[in-house]
Nucleic acid binder design. Structure first.
Lengths: 70, 70
DNA sequence: CTATTTTTAATGATTAACATTAAAAATAGA
DNA sequence: TCTATTTTTAATGTTAATCATTAAAAATAG
């Protein structure tokens, strides 16, 4: 069926930013960012996604990917 | 502040698929797909996004982009 | 070991996707 | 121009799920 996978790790390592700091700068709780980071959410608001892209200075495609199976 | 923009048009033209057909194959109403296509939504479910990517045979970055403004 | 960071869990509020129906607007075809 | 099809807008209601908050457990760092 394929699914959407969020991959924050790479960019976070690249930008040398911790989860707590990213959460603060993005403007959401670290608890929720942890969920997002570990693919425990099934949707995301564009405002949140935009804030993440802004702080991490990256494109949507850098953190969201479509993973098809088979 | 920057925002997320959905761009379905390009891929739809490229795949030569109408909004009604895409809606049907994605599994959502044409009304909602129209909203998505015209950026009238503020969030999206990964299941919907994955279905769109599947039908259009594309990556997330092909239809979702972060647009920063100065 | 201890302090910090990250993850998990549970609860609750609020937002908003999505369905549905109906009508208006836009587009295409004859 | 007229007509059929497609797309968009509008309104209403249901349901899903983000996100906040609090607290505790687990993992990591020093």
């Amino acid at each position: 069926m394929g699914k959407i996978v969020l991959r924050l790790d790479r960019m976070m390592v690249e930008r040398k930013i911790s989860l707590n700091e990213l959460a603060e700068r993005v403007g959401i709780s670290n608890v929720n960012l942890s969920k997002i980071k570990n693919n425990k959410v099934t949707a995301i608001r564009f405002s949140t996604l935009a804030a993440i892209c802004k702080v991490l200075e990256c494109e949507v495609g850098d953190i969201l990917e479509y993973q098809k199976n088979d």
